[in-house]
Design a binder for these strands. Structure first.
Lengths: 137, 137
DNA sequence: ATATAATATAACCAATCTAGTTATTTATAA
DNA sequence: TTATAAATAACTAGATTGGTTATATTATAT
């Protein structure tokens, strides 16, 4: 399952993308305006920063800003950064087809189902969300 | 995530479907031939029985058999019987769009992604698996 | 300079879920 | 009547989730 943390990270990026480029927003402000747990916002920003997507300046009048074009970040990327690799079944995490059987038709079904899902998550970007919905979940 | 239990249930049904109609198989035989934990097989068969898909006769020379046409059972059904409703995010479990916002574009994305996945799981039946793969995960 | 506002980092925790195990009961064929 | 098999129920260790708490660090307004 896609975790709430991943969802929160998407919302944080969307919030940042909905501010004029170059301006900074404090993590508390992000948390308040999107009704997210403030401590989680800080925690997630650390991961987004590590990815190079966001950066912050400290001290009074400091804050966070987006460092990349929001159209360059799709939802699959955000989810995988926060949650790790996506897999709708455990089967898809192991790189060898289950145990000692040569091929596994179930695995093929899982893979097709998952790819169908991922194609949607890949084609939607943070920019899309920022444009279409000023305020989200 | 689709649990191993759901996957096991699919495998159990596939195993049953790969035997001549009307013949019975013991739960231990199912477990052995597909390398599943025997106790879990028993546990899952209880659920499948409740659904009316399988039935058993007790005692010596007893066993389990399929009660319905395997082409009538698709993977989505099995997963939902075992795991409960499918949701790739928590958001999709609540029937009201998040909190106090009128609409949520993220929710729409999740729904589209999930439906793309489900369409694959709905179009594949136990019969398909039984035909294409004698032995699976 | 220095208090303060803010990011940044790390460790911790309760509740739930997963993937089982164990034990007991009931029905039936031989 | 007894061995065999399904059926039912309760329990459990370990992992994951969705947080909280505590502390360190840094930049800037005064």
């Amino acid at each position: 399952m896609i975790t709430k943390k991943a969802e929160y990270a998407i919302i944080i990026l969307t919030e940042l993308a909905s501010h004029p480029q170059g301006t900074v927003v404090t993590s508390k402000e992000i948390a308040r305006s999107r009704a997210l747990p403030p401590n989680l916002v800080v925690q997630l920003l650390a991961v987004l920063k590590e990815e190079g997507w966001t950066g912050g300046t400290r001290g009074p009048s400091g804050g966070i800003k987006l460092l990349v074009d929001p159209s360059e970040i799709n939802l699959r990327q955000v989810i995988e950064i926060i949650d790790g690799p996506i897999g709708i079944t455990r089967c898809l995490f192991s790189d060898t087809p289950c145990q000692n059987k040569t091929h596994c038709s179930l695995r093929g079904v899982w893979a097709r189902a998952q790819n169908n899902m991922l194609s949607v998550l890949e084609e939607v970007t943070i920019r899309d969300l920022a444009e279409k919905a000023p305020r989200d979940c």
